[in-house]
Design a protein around this nucleic acid. Structure first.
Lengths: 343, 343
DNA sequence: TTGTAGGCGTTATCAG
DNA sequence: CTGATAACGCCTACAA
């Protein structure tokens, strides 16, 4: 606004700031990087100069020098699903807080080529770390093949060890809620077989039923969409299930609608439990009992792992935890009206 | 894998490629940038060398030279809503196709400081173009204040002229569907008053009713959530409305559930139309009549505008359209079971 | 069609 | 604590 710059303002750089502050550009650089060994008087002078000139750092130049971009790459897929979209936003927030940028690339996780291309894209961007949404087993395979040499953390994978919500525990919670209500014929409306989380949930269902000596088994495959839940209604009805654990809330929605069209009431005739706890689930009819996952926490951990790894491995020791094996995030059951006792 | 590199592989650069191909680095650069004046023999030799060395371009260096990052910044907000999350993914796809990266920053569109911070963030990244989700009037204000000097396109704004879905037309479609079914007491469940799209839809509602000489008016404010729709049910019932145009599908969902709890059936007692056509809407109970917006097209246009602007202003002329004022994207009504004749 | 020189804005290294 | 000098890897001139 009030700039009275005589020379051509071609772009304010450290050199300009240095000149105005009467120091070398190296000193400016030190201030920029919060290097401790700078006299506070000098520091203030430099800051003032930056202020006056409206200086902004050039990241390209910095990256060129440091070989680090302070950018985290996110390979997202299925970003229209509630969980992933939620995670993406959370990752960005965590990253920014840590002073990082986020560069995103979307891929179709089912298509290896698309995943490969997206990773190449991010890699060319020279990201310092990579968060990969790997819901498909195939995605992980591609990841291993490529061996990017970049610190990477996988998300939305059923890998219990690392950064994930405990899918099996969540599924058991759901099945248990149904069993506790007195149901003995509990079906599972599962996600696609090539999704790791879907399989984990299916095995949690299996485990809980086995633990309770329940013999009835029915697994119907869906594809996460409400439509597929809708289409599963007939199979559920025909098998005489009195309860269904749906792999996500959307399928639960479709299922409920499908059952209703067949004259089967939820929860009077059939009880339903979902998974995710989307914001809408509380307003389904009936309000859906479901399992909530803490995606924010997940994202936070992922970013922390990447950022910590890059700079100082001990930076996580501030709390009081083991360094290698963080416990998976625990899901929690949200009870609403879609579960009732069997007739 | 099978690298037998004698020297320290410090990072393969143009210089290495040039050496191996027996040309100057400038020639390599030309190949990289698809400069026409390169003998095809030389070209092939260079490409082979790049292949052999596993060369990858360093974007930071390129950006430093060209002052362009080939990165589009996306200032996203309300990314958990269906429309925005959809748009973000579409933007990324379009950008990548155009050879651009996408750097995202999320902000709370209602909070001016948060918007400012996010824009600063992106600006420091030296993005070549900016896509700003500006659902709030306030967001636009911040944008104007800042005057980034970066080509910018606003999305999810009610600005009819540019890259947007025609909100008013959409709202009129919704209201018309209700009126055509015979309703004369049509209420509007609106989004927050400080949302431009919400206001546009409200004015579309108003316009359509006025055009039909319908006197009844009732506008209930929601906040886009199903919860707010749920809470609006009583007001709708008490006012004796026989139809409601909800500002989005989620509020429609909550409204329907709320009405049902009050003993009001949809569509027998009250008809409802939503907005967005989320994938779930077809499986609500009853399946929701709603207005579909083409977010993909929107994103495509936004990116095209940015990329075109940056390089060659005439690049859009390939089709056959005026250069300045693209028509807004037309929404379309999706008829389902939530609308019936009034009793 | 190809090569030579210089610079983009910052950080690293080594002196002072 | 501060400053010189040389990279970082590529691109834009201009020259050959």
């Amino acid at each position: 606004m009030s700039e009275t710059n005589g020379t051509r303002t071609r772009a304010v750089g450290v050199r300009d700031v240095a000149a105005l502050a009467g120091v070398s550009r190296q000193t400016v650089s030190r201030v920029l990087n919060e290097h401790p060994d700078v006299a506070s008087a000098t520091h203030d002078r430099v800051v003032a100069a930056m202020e006056e000139l409206g200086y902004r750092m050039n990241n390209a130049a910095r990256a060129l020098g440091t070989r680090r971009t302070r950018t985290i790459g996110v390979l997202a897929s299925d970003a229209l699903q509630y969980g992933p979209s939620r995670s993406i936003a959370a990752i960005e927030a965590s990253a920014r807080e840590a002073g990082y940028w986020v560069s995103t690339a979307y891929a179709d996780s089912g298509d290896a080529d698309s995943v490969r291309a997206a990773i190449e894209h991010l890699r060319a961007q020279a990201v310092d770390g990579l968060v990969v949404f790997a819901p498909h087993a195939r995605t992980l395979d591609v990841l291993k093949d490529l061996d990017t040499g970049i610190p990477t953390v996988a998300l939305h994978t059923a890998d219990r060890s690392a950064h994930s919500v405990d899918q099996i525990a969540g599924a058991r919670l759901a099945a248990a809620a149904l069993a506790d209500a007195g149901h003995r014929r509990i079906a599972h409306l599962a996600g696609p077989a090539d999704w790791l989380e879907a399989e984990a949930r299916a095995s949690g269902y299996e485990a809980e039923l086995a633990a309770r000596d329940l013999d009835f088994r029915l697994t119907v495959r869906g594809d996460w969409t409400a439509r597929s839940g809708y289409e599963a209604a007939r199979a559920v009805r025909d098998a005489g299930a009195t309860a269904v654990f749906a792999g996500n809330d959307q399928m639960a929605l479709g299922l409920i609608t499908g059952l209703r069209e067949l004259g089967v009431d939820v929860p009077v005739d059939v009880s339903v439990v979902g998974f995710d706890d989307t914001p809408d689930a509380a307003y389904f009819w009936p309000p859906l009992t479901t399992v909530r996952q803490d995606f924010d926490e997940l994202a936070r951990r992922a970013v922390a792992a990447l950022v910590g790894e890059g700079s100082d491995a001990a930076s996580e020791a501030s709390e009081a935890s083991a360094s290698a094996a963080p416990a998976p995030v625990a899901p929690v059951l949200i009870s609403r009206a879609s579960v009732a006792m069997p007739r």
